[in-house]
Design a binder for these strands. Structure first.
Length: 216
DNA sequence: TGCCAGGCCGGGT
DNA sequence: ACCCGGCATGGC
């Protein structure tokens, strides 16, 4: 077993032992996963929850209902998520594609194989690599590893990736050593977020009782 | 009170 | 192929 592989598995065990299964994605349906994935771009999940709660309260959280809204109306509902004007546009870009190319049928879109789905998502303005991979993994259950700010922060501090490594470079560390396993990728990313939120803030050290502290 | 959060785009170099 | 400013609310 390669050195990286052993480390990645040890990290996983340490986080899993500390926190247990995370049960991701925090959303009830594939559609809700997609909306949440776009809304959480550079935004804390607690703010996204408020926006999604608004949509649910108004019975708007369906493809048809959201598609029928104008961007400005949608923006008003998702205000708490921040960047509400750009995000309203991005949500509409996704919905426009869903209705124009797939008849508004989400399961038809999600039925595509992983590479084709990822490629189509990336072709939508407002969906980048992390959002696309989140949707492929957590809405379609295909094994794409999700790399986020916490992943780069934690694994560069542990010197498993360079500080300035790009998205694909970081992603390959995981896919080449663990993959492809949707359940493992699912739990691993969720554990990284859980760990990062409490023990790996941007400014510094704050490691505290982080389960990965012993490996620093 | 500032700083930060589960990114991404568009324009400039 | 990178680099950077812009986008915005809510929590600590």
């Amino acid at each position: 077993m390669k050195k990286e592989e052993a480390k990645l598995k040890a990290f996983y065990s340490a986080m899993f032992n500390a926190f247990g299964p995370q049960g991701w994605w925090p959303g009830e349906t594939p559609f809700e996963v997609i909306i949440g994935a776009i809304l959480t771009q550079n935004t804390s999940w607690s703010n996204v929850e408020k926006a999604i709660a608004n949509l649910k309260k108004e019975k708007l959280l369906t493809p048809k209902r959201l598609h029928a809204l104008k961007a400005g109306e949608l923006a008003a509902h998702i205000r708490p998520a921040g960047y509400f004007n750009v995000k309203a546009k991005r949500l509409k870009n996704f919905l426009d594609r869903l209705f124009e190319k797939h008849g508004g049928n989400l399961s038809r879109l999600l039925k595509k194989d992983a590479p084709a789905l990822r490629e189509e998502l990336l072709s939508i303005n407002g969906i980048g690599p992390e959002t696309a991979d989140s949707i492929v993994l957590y809405a379609a259950n295909h094994p794409e590893f999700v790399v986020d700010a916490y992943t780069k922060r934690i694994f560069s501090r542990h010197k498993l990736v360079k500080i300035d490594a790009g998205y694909e470079e970081v992603k390959s560390l995981f896919t080449e050593n663990l993959g492809p396993d949707a359940q493992v990728f699912n739990e691993y990313h969720a554990l990284i977020v859980r760990t990062g939120k409490y023990f790996c803030k941007n400014r510094e050290p704050l490691c505290g009782s982080c389960p990965l502290k012993a490996y620093l």
